[in-house]
Design a binder for these strands. Structure first.
Length: 679
DNA sequence: CTAGGGTTAG
């Protein structure tokens, strides 16, 4: 004969049970001894089943409970909340309310309000708030901070603030709710302001508050505040866990301090996939592709399976360096393990496009069901950078047939596609429609596209008039667009005016200075030429070294200008020498004006011949079979001489050559180039 | 006697 346990010891047993099998036995024991009728015991049993992940068993206990009290109900509702089923929380809350008994208590309301917040369901939230206040919970700190959070998550910071001000007692949770609310509303200044008030009232921040503050620093883009938060945490011995430390890693990474981010990461007491994801995305977003990919491998060596965030960052890194082979294999990994969501799908589409495989990008775009506006924008932009303006427009028209509404980014991509393809009429037409029909505010970006489009086609006066009609002060890119158009069409007067504007705005791109200097040189304005040259010399230290990447048999090969370190250097130079002879027969003349040093013509020619893209192409020709297409990824803008040279090379060797520079793709096939002049 | 605030991505 079994004897029943006392109520406290039974409840204690249930609370400490974390093993599914043991729980089943305890359950059987409870049933046999008839202890289920103890108050709270069925609640504890439900909670225990929820803890071990058996929501079905939790349900059945609830159903068989003879007289469920509020504790039993709460146990079931909390079980759904913990397992991430906010809609079920709401469902059982409504069921409870419709029965009229037992009376919901403070916990019922807090959990339900949290569910509304998660679902961004403001209407249900208001319903719950009304009910809670009817039952006299308007001053309950727990209920109040849940209401604050519900308002904040539903984007209603005004109501949240009003209620917060009226709260007689505030605790650390209600303060934090307001701080994070403002951070998420994109108002980091207000968030920091609330924190200051909290401090002034003598409430000391905890780890969670620090997380919010670090996020505020990221949103604010202020490294100084971030570091002082870190310092404060150390001085005040604020308890840190994975989440807090991950936020620190993220803060340093997003501000571009990858070394510090890595040190903090290494020192973490424990790490999880999110910590890895924060560091990897930091590397990927700051252009440190190889570090991102290295850490993606490392995390697996440490036993972590990459989540979609880490994979998206890996994909992003591949896009950066044109690593198609690895991008493809990550794509495969995703297909085996995940369903495509919007973000994964868009990242992979973008990767194919950026690695030169526009067709694969489109194919995936058509196959993936998870498409949102950003996916469409990405596809339109992909056509644009590849110089397929017509297809960009067709895709835009397809988008128009969906429920999605094109935004400023859609039009930026579309207009840019027109400008890269020389579709002047379309550009004018859609620019006007954008403003008049779609009511989208024009930004600097849109003007850059339009000025570029018009000026490139020779309509420099119209482009200038457009600039003069701009509501805000035009940025340097707008003037550069006008300048390059004037340069191409030998409009010297306006060109020099635009050049002056460009110089005023101090761009940090050497290529732009060379364009400026060129315009003055053509106009025989030698004083200005000398001045520009002097400024170029002064910024020599800020020069980014140029490099080109080419993928051969799944391996990336990097070349820098005059890079003699490559084992095949002799063969590469030999091939380039032989090509040079053929190129000259086709009328190629080295454009020595693209060497910005005062040197002999002969030396300049030799320097041009050593440009990284030429080395990479020669290596590609030597190592791939005839007829294969060669894709080059360049970190700077392709130079005008290389542009001419590659046109000829493509014809001589009968290969399709694709060069991606910072702005767009240049497709070369048999002396045709999809983008006209190199600018 | 439980419940409310927190980390990474296109």
């Amino acid at each position: 004969m079994l004897s029943a346990l006392s109520r406290p010891s039974l409840n204690h047993l249930l609370r400490s049970c974390n093993d599914a099998q043991a729980l089943v036995q305890i359950h059987a024991f409870i049933v046999v001894t008839g202890s289920l009728s103890y108050p709270h015991s069925s609640g504890h049993l439900i909670a225990a089943y929820a803890r071990v992940g058996d929501i079905v068993a939790a349900h059945s206990v609830f159903r068989t409970a003879s007289n469920p009290n509020i504790f039993t109900w709460n146990a079931l509702i909390v079980a759904h909340s913990r397992r991430g089923f906010p809609d079920q929380v709401l469902r059982f809350y409504r069921l409870l309310v419709s029965q009229g008994r037992p009376r919901p208590d403070s916990s019922t309301f807090t959990v339900t309000l949290k569910a509304c917040a998660k679902l961004f369901d403001f209407r249900s939230g208001q319903e719950v708030v009304a009910h809670a206040s009817d039952l006299g919970y308007s001053h309950d700190v727990f209920v109040c901070s849940s209401v604050l959070n519900m308002y904040a998550k539903c984007g209603n910071m005004n109501d949240a603030m009003r209620m917060f001000d009226e709260m007689p007692r505030k605790d650390i949770v209600s303060w934090t709710t307001m701080i994070t609310g403002f951070v998420n509303a994109g108002n980091p200044l207000e968030a920091i302001e609330v924190y200051r008030k909290m401090q002034a009232e003598g409430v000391e921040g905890d780890g969670i508050v620090m997380v919010s503050l670090l996020q505020a620093c990221v949103a604010f883009g202020d490294m100084g505040i971030g570091q002082s938060v870190h310092g404060y945490m150390l001085r005040h011995h604020i308890e840190t866990g994975v989440v807090v430390e991950t936020s620190l890693v993220d803060m340093y990474a997003k501000n571009g301090f990858l070394e510090t981010a890595h040190i903090v990461f290494e020192k973490m007491s424990s790490k999880n996939v999110v910590s890895w994801g924060a560091l990897i995305s930091g590397y990927a977003q700051n252009g440190f592709a190889s570090d991102a990919l290295w850490m993606l491998i490392k995390m697996q060596e440490f036993g972590f399976c990459p989540d979609s965030v880490a994979l998206v960052s890996g994909i992003l890194a591949c896009s950066h360096i044109g690593f198609l082979k690895l991008g493809k294999s990550i794509h495969g990994f995703i297909m085996r393990r995940f369903d495509f969501d919007h973000i994964l799908g868009t990242a992979v589409i973008d990767m194919y496009s950026k690695c030169g495989s526009l067709l694969s990008a489109r194919e995936l775009f058509d196959r993936v069901c998870a498409r949102d506006l950003i996916s469409w924008n990405t596809m339109i932009a992909s056509y644009g950078v590849h110089g397929h303006g017509k297809e960009a427009l067709l895709t835009f028209l397809e988008l128009s047939k969906t429920e999605l509404k094109p935004d400023h980014a859609t039009f930026a991509s579309l207009l840019s596609a027109f400008s890269h393809s020389g579709l002047v009429e379309e550009g004018r037409h859609w620019f006007n429609l954008m403003r008049q029909e779609y009511r989208i505010d024009t930004s600097d970006k849109h003007y850059v596209c339009m000025v570029d489009l018009l000026a490139r086609a020779g309509h420099v006066e119209e482009a200038h008039e457009l600039i003069q009609s701009m509501p805000d002060e035009p940025g340097v890119a707008v003037w550069v667009a006008l300048l390059s158009g004037c340069h191409n069409h030998k409009k010297l007067e306006l060109g020099q005016y635009a050049a002056g504007k460009v110089l005023e705005l101090c761009p940090d791109d050497l290529g732009i200075y060379s364009l400026v200097s060129n315009v003055f040189a053509v106009a025989k304005n030698w004083d200005k030429v000398v001045e520009v040259r002097r400024r170029m010399k002064n910024m020599g230290t800020r020069k980014v070294p140029g490099y080109s990447l080419v993928e051969v048999e799944g391996k990336l090969h990097a070349f820098r200008m005059e890079d003699r370190s490559h084992p095949e250097y002799e063969k590469i130079m030999d091939l380039l020498k032989r090509l040079d002879i053929e190129m000259r027969k086709l009328g190629y003349k080295p454009k020595t004006e693209f060497v910005f040093h005062d040197l002999d013509e002969e030396v300049k020619e030799r320097m041009l011949g050593n440009h990284s893209e030429k080395l990479a192409i020669a290596f590609g020709l030597l190592t791939t079979s005839p007829g294969t297409r060669i894709v080059i990824i360049k970190n700077l803008r392709i130079c005008g001489d290389c542009h001419d040279a590659i046109k000829c090379i493509s014809e001589i060797v009968n290969r399709e050559i694709v060069v991606r520079d910072v702005k767009r793709f240049h497709h070369f096939r048999n002396r045709l180039c999809s983008c006209g002049d190199y600018w």
